[in-house]
Design a protein around this nucleic acid. Structure first.
Length: 352
DNA sequence: GAGGCGTGGCT
DNA sequence: TAGCCAAGCCT
């Protein structure tokens, strides 16, 4: 038996009664910029985590024009602690394109939105439907899970096949004129009722239409491929002082913690760590005396890896920085002005 | 298609 | 504890 078409209206009814008040939700028409910011922040991130970042962000960068004019370091500083920092960099790039190419007006069509940096299929659908009420799907992890259960989809939900099928299903079920509410309701429903491990079927208004529940498979579905085991990374880190300053460097502009600041580090901890740190300093023109003992050991699970950091202290003994762009002596009283993240954020505690 | 990319809460 | 998972996107 195929699923009844009744569930979309029941879902909308449930949503109208159970809509959580969120800072980016307002009655009536929604500001496309506010939708965009909240959607990007919400990628792989819980609502509760996003809230304070969103509010502070909108105070500092209240519009496309103001964000477009912002400095990247200030933008990263606002994003510090939220994770997936390429989101912030891509958002800045994309907002600048909107400002220059579209006169500051965020496009409403999915195809145009998709050309923007950091805007993929989900986010394009979300902006187009939530802000402009266009009848397109916005398929995220919640929607995949909810539909996989409602329609008893037993394939791996991470496959492109399932994603296409779910997109088609959602778009075929959008109640006329209600695309924005419908997409948001699906996500909210997935976050509150049709939750991952043990869905709250006793509170579910759609239980009668759920094929997974009918088959007793509500805790089996959705099927998702196993993730890989976390690996280990070992680094020796140097806190190098000179009077009241400390030596820091900016990471490369892509990859892990792109463009964020850190204490210089070399891979590997056992043996030769002090030598390798000295070589690293020498490569940028600085000679340093390194204390032989490790002053701090940090174990930090981060970016799907287990990181072991051995922190050394050093004193500047001579030389001048040859790489002025990515390296700098930072007065200790100013380190909070730079964006830090990951395990290196913990080391700043040594400075105070 | 697979792997890289953060962080925090929950089990 | 170690693993799983959460409003994904880029390469």
């Amino acid at each position: 038996m195929k699923n009844s078409d009744k569930w979309p209206l029941l879902l909308l009814e449930w949503f109208s009664k159970n809509r959580r008040p969120l800072p980016w939700r307002s009655e009536g028409k929604r500001d496309p910029y506010a939708v965009w910011v909240s959607e990007v922040m919400s990628q792989q991130t819980k609502v509760e985590t996003v809230k304070p970042y969103y509010e502070s962000w909108m105070e500092q960068f209240p519009s496309v024009a103001e964000l477009a004019a912002a400095d990247e370091q200030d933008v990263l500083r606002q994003w510090q602690g939220l994770g997936y920092y390429s989101r912030a960099k891509n958002l800045l790039t994309a907002v600048r394109e909107v400002q220059n190419k579209y006169g500051g007006v965020i496009p409403s069509e999915k195809a145009e939105l998709l050309t923007l940096k950091g805007v993929g299929d989900y986010t394009a659908g979300a902006i187009s439907s939530l802000a402009y009420n266009r009848p397109v799907a916005a398929v995220d992890g919640n929607v995949l899970r909810v539909l996989a259960r409602l329609y008893k989809i037993e394939e791996n939900i991470l496959s492109t096949n399932v994603k296409k099928e779910v997109t088609r299903l959602v778009e075929s079920q959008i109640p006329p004129g209600r695309a924005g509410d419908f997409n948001e309701a699906l996500m909210e429903f997935g976050a509150v009722i049709c939750i991952p491990k043990y869905p709250r079927c006793s509170d579910c208004p759609l239980a009668d239409f759920c094929e997974a529940k009918a088959a007793g498979m509500e805790t089996v579905l959705p099927v998702r491929l196993a993730s890989k085991k976390q690996t280990e990374e070992k680094y020796a880190v140097l806190v190098c002082r000179r009077n009241k300053s400390v030596l820091v460097r900016q990471r490369p502009d892509r990859g892990l913690l792109a463009s964020m600041w850190e204490f210089p580090a070399v891979r590997g901890e056992e043996g030769r760590a002090e030598e390798k740190l000295k070589d690293l300093m020498a490569s940028v023109g600085i000679s340093v005396f390194i204390e032989p003992e490790i002053v701090m050991k940090i174990k930090h699970v981060f970016s799907h890896k287990k990181w072991h950091l051995s922190v050394y202290e050093g004193q500047y003994t001579g030389g001048n920085l040859t790489e002025k762009e990515k390296w700098q002596w930072l007065p200790v009283c100013e380190y909070t002005s730079l964006p830090w993240a990951g395990p290196h954020g913990k080391i700043t505690a040594l400075l105070s």
